[in-house]
Amino acid sequence: MMPHSDNQPIVPGISLDAAGQATVDPVLADLLFDLAIQLEEPTNQPVDVEHVLAAIILAARKGELDATKPLTADAELVAVLVEHVKSIFTDYDGKVGRDD
Rank of each mutant, 00 (worst) to 15 (best):
A60L: 03
R61K: 11
R61M: 03
R61C: 10
R61A: 11
K62H: 10
K62E: 15
K62G: 13
G63S: 12
G63H: 02
E64T: 04
L65C: 08
L65V: 14
D66C: 05
D66Y: 04
A67I: 01
A67Q: 04
A67W: 01
A67D: 06
T68F: 06
T68P: 00
T68C: 02
K69R: 14
K69A: 12
P70K: 05
A73I: 11
A73F: 14
A75W: 13
E76P: 04
E76M: 07
E76I: 12
E76Q: 11
L77N: 01
L77Q: 02
A79M: 09
V80L: 09
V80H: 01
V80M: 08
V80W: 01
L81V: 04
V82I: 15
E83V: 12
H84P: 03
V85T: 11
V85W: 02
K86C: 07
S87T: 07
S87D: 13
I88S: 01
I88G: 05
I88F: 10
F89A: 06
F89I: 03
F89W: 12
T90D: 11
T90W: 00
D91E: 15
D91P: 04
D91G: 03
Y92N: 11
D93A: 13
D93Y: 05
D93L: 12
G94R: 07
K95F: 08
K95I: 15
K95T: 13
K95S: 05
K95Y: 08
